[in-house]
Simulated scan of single mutants.
Amino acid sequence: MIEVKFYENKDHYDDVMYVREDVFIREQGFSTDKDEIDNHCTHILFLDDNKPFATGRIFNEDGDIIIGRVCVLEAYRGKGYGIKIIQELEKKAKERGATSTILGAQCQAKEFYLKLGYEEFGDIYFDEYCPHIHMRHTF
């Protein structure tokens, strides 16, 4: 049974990090995925029979609502869970009074976000070795 849960700060952090480390560190080769933002954000976690398989986070930064660390374990890709993560995090942003969300997309995932209504802004930047672009979705 698929469940979707929200957690504040570092509640259920081991489950969140299980997914993020599998995708970002083991699969994509980043050296780390932990940062201070995890201390003050809201995580979304998708579970299949209590096993975590997808996650993302949302937080406020300088008046903007930021979505980040969106990832889905390989076995669950292509089933719409990435879209569902974004939709749920955007609902959470609207509950907080936001009229838009911002994210830093890996350039290889840019098309995914464009299809969801996001638009690019700014210059390409690098997170470790990986090119990223800022994107915004206005509701």
Rank of each mutant, 00 (worst) to 15 (best):
Ile2Val: 15
Glu3Tyr: 00
Lys10Arg: 07
Tyr13Ile: 11
Tyr13Pro: 01
Asp14Lys: 07
Asp15Val: 03
Tyr18Ile: 13
Arg20Asn: 02
Val23Ile: 11
Ile25Thr: 11
Glu27Arg: 04
Gly29Ile: 03
Ser31Asp: 03
Ser31Met: 14
Asp33Ser: 05
Asp35Leu: 06
Glu36Ala: 09
Glu36Leu: 15
His40Thr: 13
His40Phe: 10
Cys41Lys: 05
Leu45Ser: 11
Leu47Ala: 05
Leu47Trp: 00
Asp48Asn: 14
Phe53Leu: 10
Gly56Trp: 00
Ile58Phe: 03
Ile58Pro: 01
Gly63Trp: 03
Ile66Phe: 09
Arg69His: 10
Val70Phe: 03
Leu73Tyr: 11
Ala75His: 13
Tyr81Met: 05
Ile85Val: 02
Ile86Lys: 00
Glu90Asn: 11
Glu90Thr: 13
Lys92Ala: 13
Lys92Arg: 11
Gly97Glu: 03
Gly97Tyr: 02
Ala98Pro: 03
Ser100Glu: 01
Cys107Ala: 12
Cys107Trp: 11
Cys107Arg: 08
Lys110Asn: 01
Phe112Met: 08
Leu116Asn: 08
Leu116Asp: 01
Tyr118Asp: 00
Glu119Arg: 10
Glu120His: 00
Phe121Cys: 04
Tyr125Val: 01
Asp127Tyr: 14
Glu128Lys: 10
Glu128Thr: 14
Met135Leu: 03
Met135Val: 08
His137Thr: 02
Thr138Gly: 05
